[in-house]
Amino acid sequence: MKVLIQTDRLSKYYGKGGEIKAVDNLDLEVYEGETFGLLGPNGAGKTTAIRLLNCIIKPTSGTARVMGHDILDDDLEVKRVTGLLTESPGLYEKLSAYEFLEFMGALYDVPEDILPRRIEELLKLFGLQKRRDYLLEGYSRGMKQRILIASALIHDPPILFLDEPTSTLDPRAALMVKNLVRKLAEDAGKTIFICSHILPVVEELCDRIGIINKGRLVALGTVDSIKKQTRKDTLEDAFIAITGGVRKKELLSWREQRGTSA
């Protein structure tokens, strides 16, 4: 299998003397055509990893290659082969959906004879044709999310990064986005890299997952293999076991304490 993303001891430290290890010596490979999920609790370093891989920030040490382009040297090339939905992205609210896609496409130099057709295709795929000429300021959250994913696909990149694509959506909108992602992976053959802490989404969509905690990769493999490694029945239990989260018993311990002190 062809490796599309390969990180080499990728690290990003913040704070005085680099005490906050947002991403710490990450070694990871993502293969062509797979949907890869990066899981981790809040603050684990998922967003930082995605920002590093998309050349928005520079690593403290280590590097990565995205379709053969080094993130340190070829940032413009990397950006041309990736599409990214960021965690809480802004929008040009004063543009219509069509104008927005047109603008984003122009930024990638999508040829003018291809762009209109591609915009139509994306609007159709994302069910936004009827609202194409409405200003984005009137869009609902779910619709904004769809237009943002569409804009990440406007230059037809082989790799799509999605940072928490469903965490702010209601169940229906989340389902729609989930189906879309599946369609992109299966029909369009995209390689997809999803970050999330919503386990069912990841479990359903991803061929392989990596679990990251405090910047370090602590598990890697298919969902089944990770369950097996941790001898748990659900991904949730495995996740808690691996990331060292609190158990139910610990969560309830305050009751006992109160009970005894009263």
Partner: peptide
């Protein structure tokens, strides 16, 4: 405003 609204993310992820 655009910094706060994460509008620049749109450009930072693109070859701009």
């Amino acid at each position: 405003n655009e910094r706060k609204g994460h509008v620049y993310d749109l450009f930072f992820v693109r070859p701009v």
